[in-house]
Amino acid sequence: MTLEQLRIFAEVARQQHLTRAAESLHLTPSAVSAAIKALEERYATQLFNRIGRRIELNETGRIFLHEAEAVLARAQAAELTLTEITGLQRGSLHIYASQTTASYWLPPLLA
């Protein structure tokens, strides 16, 4: 299971429509359908009820959606952490200095 498959699944679940989800994700409907099919085949379960041309989450899909959204939120938080660290907005700065410099010169500059 990939993060991309989770993103696709979550969007289809929110939209309750393959084509609208594909448009939202800037993918083709066949790519979205293939990702959902791959998930369902890999775990030998159905996540959606297909009624004619309609699609709706079933009970398994609702339970899985809760977990998928949690994973996606953690992945987004991890991505934000890396972005902040590389953008020097987050992290640690270690300054080493002699006792005189650290006691007299640095405090006013750091304050």
Rank of each mutant, 00 (worst) to 15 (best):
L88T: 05
T86A: 13
F48V: 00
Q5S: 14
I85H: 08
A70I: 05
Y96S: 03
N49S: 03
L57N: 04
I95F: 01
I8S: 07
T100W: 03
A13K: 06
A75T: 09
M1N: 09
E4I: 14
R90A: 08
V71S: 12
Q46N: 12
A75V: 10
T45I: 13
Q99A: 13
G52L: 02
V71K: 14
E67R: 13
A111I: 07
S33V: 05
T19Q: 11
V71D: 07
E40A: 05
L109T: 06
Q99T: 10
S92D: 00
L106V: 01
L93F: 01
S98I: 01
L47C: 10
L6H: 10
L93Q: 03
S33Y: 07
I51H: 08
I63E: 11
S30Q: 15
A111E: 14
A78C: 06
I85A: 10
H26Y: 06
L93H: 03
S30M: 15
E56V: 09
K37G: 01
A10R: 00
A78I: 10
S24E: 12
Q76T: 15
R50A: 05
T86Q: 15
N58Y: 11
R90F: 07
Q76E: 15
L18A: 07
S30V: 15
Q46V: 06
T83R: 14
L72K: 10
W105Y: 12
A75F: 10
Q89F: 10
G61M: 11
H94N: 08
T101R: 00
E41V: 00
F64A: 15
L65T: 07
Y43G: 04
Q46A: 11
R7S: 13
Q15T: 06
L25T: 08
R50Y: 07
A38I: 04
A68W: 07
L6A: 14
K37M: 04
A102W: 00
L3W: 12
A21L: 04
